[in-house]
């Protein structure tokens, strides 16, 4: 199933921060890959396809084994600003939601208060 998805959408499975040029092609044995591919999927895959598949698997392995890249300060700052903007919007909407909830059932609440509430006359 992994191979099929790679066949139809090879560009979407790239690991983030890892380019295909970093993969060592010498580690891949094309014939073995082709045989394996034929056996497992029953497909008549070309050598290019097998190469592409090999690139993909290697890039995934490399991404798992390589240490995570540190984001740049600009990127961090942009993320922080985005988060702050998001929270500010949340606070603003919280007030609106509170107002809405307070007035949502105002008529029913008043009717219930008149029904069960006690008036006091001094």
């Amino acid at each position: 199933m992994q191979i099929q998805s790679n066949l139809f959408a090879p560009s979407t499975t790239k690991a983030p921060g890892v380019s295909s040029s970093n993969v060592k092609r010498s580690q891949v044995e094309p014939s073995h890959q082709v045989e394996q591919s034929h056996k497992s999927q029953g497909l008549e895959a070309s050598q290019q396809v097998t190469h592409g598949q090999a690139d993909k698997e290697n890039s995934q392995q490399h991404a798992l084994s390589a240490p995570p890249q540190n984001p740049s300060p600009e990127e961090l700052e942009s993320r922080l600003v985005a988060k702050l903007e998001y929270e500010q919007q949340t606070q603003g909407t919280e007030g609106a939601v509170a107002h809405y909830l307070a007035n949502q059932h105002a008529a029913q609440r008043e009717a219930i208060q008149q029904m069960v509430g006690i008036d006091t006359y001094a």
Partner: peptide
């Protein structure tokens, strides 16, 4: 001399 009347309904 103060007092309170507790009631429900009526014409306030």
């Amino acid at each position: 001399g103060a007092g309170l009347c507790f009631s429900q309904g009526g014409w306030p």
